[in-house]
Computed example of a mutant assay.
Amino acid sequence: MTGFSKGASLPSGVTVDVFAAAFEASPTPMVVTDPRRGDNPVVWANAAFLTLTGYDREELYGYNCRMLQGPHTDAGVLQTMRTALRAGRPFEGELLNYRKDGTPFWNGMTINPVRDEAGEVVYFFSAQADMTDKHGLELALRDANDALEREVGERTADLRSALEQKTALLHEVDHRVKNNLQVISSLMLLKARRTPEGETRDALQAMADRIGALSTAHRMLYSEGDVSRFDFKEFTNDLIADLAAGLDEDRTRIETEIEALALSAAMAAPLALLIHELATNALRHAFPQERQGRVFIEARRCEAGMRLVIQDDGIGMASAPSNAAGFGRTLVEMVVRQLRGTLDWSDAGPGTRIAITIPLTGADAP
């Protein structure tokens, strides 16, 4: 290692030549520069450094290491390195360097100042490593990640398009079902008007009303943005508005207290049929002979799912006339079973109270 100061103390029996031999044999590329000379030239390099760069010693000694720089060497990193060296501070970083034959490689380097006994920087010692494979791996990973992101983006776009098509299809189905149900309801009402008064006419009228309730359910689903769910509060209020449209509010009225619930679209039709049947039954039978009263509908979350209560302050079940041909109670019990719920009829004193508990599972659970 020609040119090194021998001022530093060494272990007994160890000479600078021993260190020089060790550094020369090291597989780590090493280079030493002398800042006391003009342009801080290379004064020593080991065999590993020669192998890394492709230069001979004669081509390196006396020249600055900038010969390894090229068109794509990062100017920002160079400036940081130069600032550190001018201040006599260590530097650690990676640079894109070029071998003698012009081949680029990523050079990972640590540069440390070597000081004499007076504290002056007499050399800079740098250990280096070829980081090209690491950068190649990082580039490959980045390309793979970019490709994966593109694929995910394309798949997401495909899924979004498929979902939009499904949503449009379901909306169209709800719209057509609603229209068909309205037609059927209208035909049944027309038939009822042409039928003499009696049980047959009443049955036709009741069935037309029930079909109308189902039509309202599909109309509400058609207006929802999410085809898989619906807002039960808005849904019920809209359904009750249809029922209350023909009422004399000075005599009978419907009041509601509905908690906002997002329910599965599959529950819309049975719930519409259930609420319509119970509310209509109360309005028809709880207030005979121009009796005044109200029907109260309440729906809230409960531990089991949803608690639906329909109560009137009318004459009560015991006083209501029996109807052997009536289908309403049977229909209500069938719908509650379909919803896997429980049903409780009781005397409200005055009036009748029907309490229904409906389990909610998965996304419908409170």
Rank of each mutant, 00 (worst) to 15 (best):
G93P: 02
S322W: 08
P29N: 10
G225M: 04
V227E: 04
F327A: 04
T252V: 14
R115Q: 09
H171G: 03
R82P: 01
E257I: 02
A127M: 15
R160L: 05
M267W: 06
S319E: 13
D202S: 06
A129N: 14
L263S: 11
P35F: 12
T83F: 12
Y222S: 00
K166Q: 11
S223V: 07
Q289N: 11
R329D: 09
D133K: 14
A304V: 08
R176K: 15
A20T: 14
R291G: 07
V14P: 13
S186V: 03
E149H: 05
A162T: 11
A129D: 02
A213N: 05
I258F: 09
A241N: 10
M207Y: 03
T33E: 06
L339K: 11
M67K: 02
P270H: 01
T167S: 10
L85G: 12
L263Y: 13
T73H: 14
D56G: 15
F235L: 02
Q311I: 06
R353C: 15
F125R: 04
L308W: 13
L163W: 03
S12F: 08
Y98R: 01
R66H: 00
E138A: 09
K166D: 09
A325W: 13
A47C: 02
A208C: 14
R253H: 04
Q182V: 08
V14D: 03
M334P: 05
F230D: 10
D226H: 15
L239T: 02
G293W: 04
G54Q: 05
A48K: 05
Y123N: 13
E259I: 02
L221I: 03
T256I: 03
A260H: 10
M1E: 14
D312Q: 08
A260T: 13
T28V: 14
T252I: 07
E138R: 09
T73W: 11
A87V: 07
G136T: 04
R160A: 15
T103Y: 00
A245I: 03
V121G: 08
